[in-house]
């Protein structure tokens, strides 16, 4: 006997993601899923957000790492609630992990919750966590061809940061090619060029994010 199903393969995850979305809404939390390759500056961007916007709204961080709690320690020193998920080899965070962590985590009403996904430009794009925004970070030293190679990630992004622009003079980074690659798969997501090291461009991005958070609440 044939049974027609026509259900998304990710349904089990997506149901949990919807539960997370409801929880975030109830608590007035703005969850941002931060995705990028290793070394692109995810933690640096998160630090910039929690010390600016986070100081106004309150902030909390969920750190996803295959192993270690190096990033979580950095955040903890700032007195920001932080929860570490070690995926034990797993290449992404899923909705269930977030749900489990949220059960114990004290997040202030109205706070921005930064979820640092595992450094990887492939797998995290498939898993909805129930977030409000998917923030994808690319960085100049990675090269301009990333949108062409990791289509699903750039397609999923609600907002894109191009980090480490202070290194532009030293690297053969073709800006036009990067933009063209992003726009071909994602016409709408704003792209912010910045450098966490020099601080250039940070304010413009934070203003945009502040507006998005205010619009939501």
């Amino acid at each position: 006997m044939k049974i027609t199903i026509m259900k998304n393969i990710m349904e089990a995850n997506d149901k949990l993601a919807d539960e997370n979305r409801v929880l975030f809404k109830e608590k007035g939390i703005t969850a941002v899923n931060v995705m990028a390759s290793p070394g692109s500056g995810k933690t640096s961007v998160i630090l910039k957000i929690i010390t600016s916007l986070g100081a106004e709204t309150g902030a909390a961080v969920i750190e996803g790492d295959i192993a270690s709690n190096i990033d979580a320690e950095t955040i903890d020193k700032l007195g920001i609630p932080v929860s570490q998920i070690n995926t034990g080899g797993g290449c992404h965070l899923d909705a269930n992990m977030i749900k489990t962590v949220m059960a114990d985590m004290q997040v202030k009403k109205g706070a921005v919750l930064l979820i640092e996904n595992v450094g990887n430009l492939v797998c995290p794009s498939t898993f909805d966590l129930g977030e409000y925004l998917k923030l994808v970070i690319a960085s100049v030293p990675e090269g301009h061809d990333k949108p062409y190679k990791y289509t699903s990630m750039f397609m999923a992004a609600d907002v894109i940061i191009l980090n480490k622009i202070d290194l532009m003079p030293y690297i053969d980074f073709d800006r036009d090619s990067f933009y063209k690659g992003v726009r071909a798969v994602n016409p709408a997501a704003p792209i912010f060029e910045l450098s966490c090291r020099t601080g250039e461009g940070i304010d413009i991005f934070i203003s945009w994010l502040r507006k998005r958070v205010q619009e939501k609440t």
Binding site: M1, I5, K7, I9
Partner: peptide, 19 residues
């Protein structure tokens, strides 16, 4: 410049055969 259509984004369980 081309933009993706919905064709190519499929990710679903169509049907199963059972006994």
């Amino acid at each position: 410049m081309g933009l993706p259509t919905d064709i190519g984004k499929e990710f679903y369980i169509e049907s199963i055969d059972v006994e």
